[in-house]
């Protein structure tokens, strides 16, 4: 565990909690892509199946349970409790275009051809693109609430910090995981455009709105 890994995890946790609180406090999930949230719930579910097979540390187990629990709570709030506020018309990204290729790729390129390992690989690949329905929704509506941009920033920052973690681990531990690294780079690159808008607009007190 190094500082990048820890801050990455905390950034991820912050993102998840920001989103939950935003929906809970405003009693609305307007502007939030339910599809992205379903994909994240699927990511955590398929990645953390090792909760049943191996114990790593109390930290590891607690974080996994919190991530999974929050992911399903978010999906519940969007599709059940505050369903009336869900903006389904703008959440029109076709997720099968992500899930099917990612499923195929995880069967073809993995560390080991076993069910748990393939599901883990699937989760890594899927996570790298799971935000696309959300970004698509923002590009469609042309704007995002400021609190939503804070959520996206923390979520993007988390994988960027993991990249630094992997650089650190390569130099100091000789460790690298090519699948996680390539997917992590893809994931971070997808946020770059957003990072730019966040820094140039949101941090200067302006609302994030895209030119028509």
């Amino acid at each position: 565990m190094n500082i990048f890994r820890l801050t990455g995890d905390l950034s991820h946790l912050a993102a998840i909690i920001i989103l939950l609180l935003k929906i809970w406090k405003s009693r609305s999930c307007a502007g939030i892509s339910g599809k992205s949230q379903i994909l994240f719930a699927l990511v955590f579910t398929t990645r953390y199946l090792d909760l049943f097979t191996s114990f790593i540390s109390l930290y590891n187990t607690c974080m996994k349970l919190i991530y999974i629990g929050c992911a399903y709570a978010t999906v519940y709030l969007i599709y059940a409790k505050f369903r009336a506020t869900y903006d389904g018309n703008h959440d029109s990204f076709r997720v099968e275009f992500l899930v099917v290729p990612v499923g195929g790729l995880s069967v073809l390129i993995n560390h080991d051809f076993s069910p748990l390992e393939i599901l883990w690989t699937f989760s890594i690949y899927l996570e790298s693109v799971a935000i696309l329905p959300q970004l698509f929704m923002i590009s469609k509506t042309g704007e995002a609430e400021t609190i939503t941009t804070h959520y996206l920033f923390c979520l993007g920052l988390y994988r960027a910090l993991y990249l630094f973690n992997w650089i650190w681990r390569f130099y100091f531990e000789g460790f690298f995981d090519m699948i996680a690294i390539v997917a992590g780079v893809v994931q971070t690159v997808l946020y770059c455009d957003f990072f730019y808008l966040y820094v140039t607009k949101v941090l200067k007190g302006k609302k994030l709105s895209l030119p028509a």
């Binding site: 565990m1 890994r5 995890d9 991820h12 090792d50 191996s54 790593i56 540390s57 590891n60 974080m63 996994k64 991530y67 560390h111 080991d112 883990w120 993991y162 973690n165 460790f175 690298f176 995981d177 699948i179 996680a180």
Partner: peptide
Amino acid sequence: EETTKDKDEL
């Protein structure tokens, strides 16, 4: 050299 994944990372 093939390194396997780290089960500790989230």
